[in-house]
Simulated scan of single mutants.
Amino acid sequence: MPRLNPMIKSKIPLSWSMHIYTHIAWPCCHALGVMKAIIFDMDGVLVDTMPSHFQAMRTAVAEIAEIDLKERTFYMLEGMPVMEMARKILDLEANKIRKGVLNLSTLAEKISMRKKEIFMQMKKIPEPFSGVRELIFECPRTCLKAVVTGSSKQELDTIIENNFGSNAFTVAINGDEFEGKGKPDPAAYLAALSRLGVPSTNALVVENAPLGVQAARRAGVKCIVVLNSSPLSASDFSESIENESYIFKDIGAVSGLLKKWCAAAES
């Protein structure tokens, strides 16, 4: 079972922080000057959008299927395309669906459309989590940054432009590019590596969802988890996280280590 990183428990001495940094099996450069890259998931890692996504899906599922969607169920399925997630929810709750209703595929399609409609009506531009802007702008330029999301191009562009500026990330990949290939499919992360021109051994993914961790692993990239506002715990990642990966309470708890890892590319 993965162990929650001790850094989240309290403010720790600098010496302990350096000890952790030097002993974690972080991916590293094999030659001086080799470029590195951090690939960030967007929703739940950079910006606090997940509560709104959950509320929209919960409302849609309740309206159309008369099912009370549990928060943990939603977060465990995060990263799936909306219609695929809706179908999975219906499969899990099949015994609660009234007989004689539409077949599950049709029901899932209706839920997907309604969820997207509700979310768009919210018209919220989310704020980044505390410490995210500093991390993005203070990382050395020799460390490339990418963002990968299952959200639409319109949503991605709006969030990035309003919170970070259009030049903050070298590569930005949205869900419209990989329709039907949500996490744990590694396609989006493989595309990010290709466009960055960085080998998987020199990249690091920052995720918040079990399916996202699986996608990163299938792409051959080391992954760390930041829980931020997620209701999930370390035990929820027991089947997806590898030994070299670590789980942190929030982005602030790992920001210093990420900056040090990036800075090594300048050595």
Results as ranks from 00 to 15, higher is better:
98 R>G: 08
198 V>C: 03
98 R>T: 12
142 T>V: 15
47 V>P: 00
239 E>R: 11
124 K>G: 01
247 I>L: 07
151 S>D: 14
116 K>E: 15
173 I>G: 09
256 G>V: 03
129 F>N: 04
17 S>K: 11
20 I>Y: 09
82 V>K: 12
9 K>E: 14
175 G>M: 08
94 A>E: 14
169 F>P: 07
25 A>L: 09
62 A>S: 15
255 S>Y: 01
19 H>L: 07
254 V>K: 02
208 N>M: 04
141 R>T: 13
171 V>D: 11
228 N>H: 08
190 L>Y: 10
177 E>P: 00
212 G>Q: 03
130 S>L: 15
50 M>L: 14
167 N>T: 12
147 V>T: 13
20 I>P: 00
93 E>P: 05
71 E>R: 05
89 I>C: 11
38 I>Q: 03
27 P>S: 06
255 S>R: 03
225 V>R: 01
204 L>M: 08
198 V>E: 02
219 A>P: 04
40 F>I: 12
238 S>C: 10
255 S>M: 07
94 A>R: 13
11 K>H: 04
136 I>K: 01
132 V>A: 11
86 A>S: 13
79 G>L: 01
82 V>P: 00
87 R>E: 13
166 S>Y: 08
42 M>A: 07
156 L>I: 03
80 M>H: 11
187 A>P: 00
258 L>F: 08
142 T>F: 14
39 I>Y: 04
192 A>S: 09
132 V>Q: 06
73 T>Y: 00
167 N>V: 06
156 L>N: 04
245 S>L: 05
52 S>L: 13
29 C>L: 08
200 S>P: 13
7 M>P: 04
204 L>T: 02
246 Y>E: 00
143 C>E: 01
